[in-house]
């Protein structure tokens, strides 16, 4: 989206992003309950300000590298809802025709270079895309999103050092939602701030942000993207946030203290942002219209996704190789 749009427009865009991500994922959750979403699925409910702000701040040709918790990051780049939902439903009209599923959403035409389900793996891969952009002089930036628990795997540290020494145009965004799957990350991490406290080890400034504040996230994102584009190298951002639900569809998240959950629910980024806009004089009718359109889009996407057929057997053997096939012998 156009980062140069005036402040009012930008704030509406930030609200629109968050609302669309929220409504989409609530629908995705309803569809699991109907047993239409097969397999697993990881929601970003509560964390939308981060993906949403980057979606507004990034240039159309920048690269996103997401995780298994990547619905929001994919949609935030402008990928239509229907193919994403159809992918969750395992339908032929899915974003990858049902071959990837919820954890591997990819839309190269929107700069979404993949969603990766092995913890930390995409950080070095984002470095590679950034290296390519640097070599081609394209001015593109690669942005990798990941969680707090991911800061303890080797690939995180390899990627940070690599990006720093080659001054790569890459932004690492740690969404610190306090938990790995079921374990509190602070109980297994040597430092209190899993990303920010590691930054100095790679010659980087620590950047700590309120991940539930879309304006703050937008400012931090823009600064990091500008720095990368100016050839000044990587940024490591730690954005504090909280997931409203469990780790994945099967998780009731009983391991979290109720007081903590309540405290974070009171800091839900979306009502907070709506209030801020109204307090700043934005016409509530404009926000209502955004919500209405988003819900209509989710409804239409649901119908379109549900109408999709199961993928045909011909897809099974397609696209192992660049020639479109799967043959390994003559």
């Amino acid at each position: 989206m156009d980062a140069a749009c005036h402040i009012g427009g930008r704030r509406l865009a930030l609200y629109d992003q968050q609302i669309r991500l929220r409504y989409f994922e609530k629908r995705a959750y309803d569809l699991f309950l109907e047993n239409l979403v097969k397999g697993t699925s990881h929601l970003s409910l509560g964390q939308e300000a981060i993906a949403g702000a980057f979606g507004v701040a990034m240039r159309h040709d920048d690269y996103t590298f997401a995780t298994y918790r990547g619905h929001a990051h994919t949609l935030a780049r402008g990928v239509p809802m229907a193919p994403v939902l159809a992918e969750l439903l395992g339908r032929e009209n899915g974003l990858m025709a049902g071959k990837g599923g919820s954890m591997h959403l990819t839309s190269v035409e929107h700069g979404v270079m993949g969603s990766y389900a092995i913890i930390g793996a995409h950080l070095p891969i984002a470095c590679g895309a950034a290296w390519s952009a640097q070599y081609r002089g394209s001015g593109q930036v690669a942005v990798a999103f990941f969680g707090d628990g991911t800061t303890n795997i080797g690939a995180f540290h390899e990627a940070l050092n690599f990006a720093a020494i080659w001054r790569l145009p890459v932004v690492f965004v740690c969404e610190n939602n306090l938990y790995m799957e079921y374990t509190r990350t602070s109980t297994v991490t040597a430092v209190p701030r899993p990303a920010a406290d590691r930054a100095s080890a790679y010659g980087l400034e620590p950047v700590l942000a309120d991940g539930n504040d879309a304006d703050e996230m937008y400012a931090v994102a823009t600064a990091a993207l500008d720095r990368a584009r100016a050839g000044e190298g990587p940024t490591l951002i730690e954005a504090l946030t909280y997931r409203h639900g469990g780790h994945s569809r099967a998780d009731p998240a009983k391991y979290r203290p109720p007081a903590e959950v309540d405290e974070w629910l009171a800091r839900d980024p979306i009502p907070m942002y709506r209030k801020r806009l109204v307090d700043a004089g934005v016409d509530a009718a404009a926000l209502d219209a955004i919500e209405k359109t988003a819900m209509e889009d989710v409804d239409a996407a649901t119908e379109e996704a549900k109408a999709g057929a199961a993928p045909g057997a011909d897809l099974l053997f397609r696209d192992v190789w660049a020639d479109g096939g799967s043959s390994w012998r003559n």
Partner: peptide, 21 residues
Amino acid sequence: DTPISEQAILGAAMGAAMTGL
């Protein structure tokens, strides 16, 4: 020349290959 970071070496190769190199 790279650091002793085999995941970074191959990750970099992968990211570069998927973006035109």
